[in-house]
């Protein structure tokens, strides 16, 4: 049963109902229904109906946002597709909301939230993404590197939408861990990084210590990233995870983190729009150039704009339960005070 935002968070009722209706006769896309939500798409737009109204969004923007939400397993905290629609990860269940973190929707009483079992919702969203992504369109790619998301149903691109990000368990390149990116593995140098040195570090392990020393070129690794706004993990120190990524165009979501997150700009430049997590009211613009470092507090949402493909090191603390400690106020929203 659907509840208001506050009720859903304190009294979660998980709705598992989901099914696919017959394809839309005009455009050929399946119609998806889960709980109280119905998702339809036409040539240009996605239309989501819910008990208090209708939400309409550009189909390309919706698919790019949905791609990240699915690929990241709903990620940390809030994945806002825009100022209105999104998901909140509770790590075994997930809220799907319309207007719950938008001051206008809240004051009008047209906000709505419903909680789902995470696996059921993920299955529904994956099916939607597969059916609604046409041949030639890759929602992970920068707009200049892929075809159009628009038009009536035209095949699919499951190879693209099933792309798996690489998650090292200790350090890239160690035996048994994730591998380096090479032409042979299908990781070509991106067109914007053709000037990035492809040399690897020298590793001279003494006899008996082979496999204990390890090093790789992070810049080469990132120059070969085939996707945008999709962090991998290259190293772990305890629960501290280096999650570098290559960025181009616009982060398709507004990420409202449930913990502190850090950005280290390794090359080029990204501008971040910062807004209040609960109301979407603008708070700041953060411009990051090569070498800049900035923290994202736990009480904001952010969206990045990268005019050229750039290398960004996202740094996360993966300690389980942090979302509860920040959510309860036990931990302050900022990483340090001075």
């Amino acid at each position: 049963m659907a509840k208001s935002t506050e009720q859903a968070i304190t009294e979660p009722t998980i709705n598992n109902a989901s099914h696919i209706q017959s394809p839309d006769p005009d455009y050929g896309y399946e119609v998806f229904q889960i709980g109280s939500y119905t998702f339809r798409r036409d040539e240009y737009f996605v239309r989501v109906t819910y008990p208090k109204g209708t939400y309409v969004v550009d189909a390309g923007n919706f698919l790019r946002a949905m791609m990240r939400d699915v690929a990241w397993g709903f990620f940390y905290g809030w994945v806002n597709f825009d100022d209105v629609f999104g998901t909140v990860n509770h790590y075994s269940s997930v809220d799907v909301f319309v207007g719950s973190y938008n001051a206008g929707y809240k004051s009008a009483g047209t906000d709505f939230v419903e909680r789902f079992d995470a696996n059921k919702l993920l299955a529904c969203f994956k099916a939607l993404l597969s059916d609604w992504t046409n041949a030639g369109f890759d929602p992970f790619a920068a707009p200049l590197e892929t075809g159009t998301p628009y038009g009536s149903k035209n095949g699919n691109n499951d190879t693209a939408v099933n792309f798996q990000r690489e998650l090292a368990e200790r350090f890239v390149g160690l035996e048994g861990d994730t591998e380096l990116r090479t032409d042979e593995r299908g990781f070509a140098v991106n067109r914007h990084f053709s000037d990035v040195d492809q040399s690897e570090p020298e590793v001279h392990a003494a006899p008996g210590f082979e496999g204990q020393l390890s090093a790789f070129s992070l810049f080469r690794y990132l120059s070969r990233s085939p996707v945008t706004w999709n962090p991998s993990i290259v190293s772990l120190v305890g629960e501290s995870a280096y999650c570098p990524t290559s960025e181009e165009h616009i982060l398709p979501i507004q990420h409202g983190n449930d913990r502190v997150e850090w950005f280290l700009q390794l090359t080029d430049e990204i501008t971040w729009q910062i807004a209040d997590k609960n109301t979407a009211a603008p708070k700041a613009i953060v411009t990051m150039k090569a070498g800049d470092i900035s923290s994202m507090p736990a009480d904001i949402q952010h969206r990045g704009f990268s005019p050229k493909r750039s290398m960004l090191l996202v740094w996360e603390n993966m300690t389980p339960g942090l979302e509860l400690r920040y959510g309860s106020g036990e931990l302050p929203p900022t990483a340090a005070e001075f």
Partner: peptide, 27 residues
């Protein structure tokens, strides 16, 4: 690709909208 170094870097920064505090971003 624009890299930076101790001899050649250009900082960005935090522009505030409203009553936000730049120091919260530890830039």
């Amino acid at each position: 690709t624009r890299f930076a170094s101790t001899d050649n870097y250009a900082k960005g920064g935090v522009e505030i909208i409203g009553d936000e505090q730049p120091r919260r971003y530890l830039f």
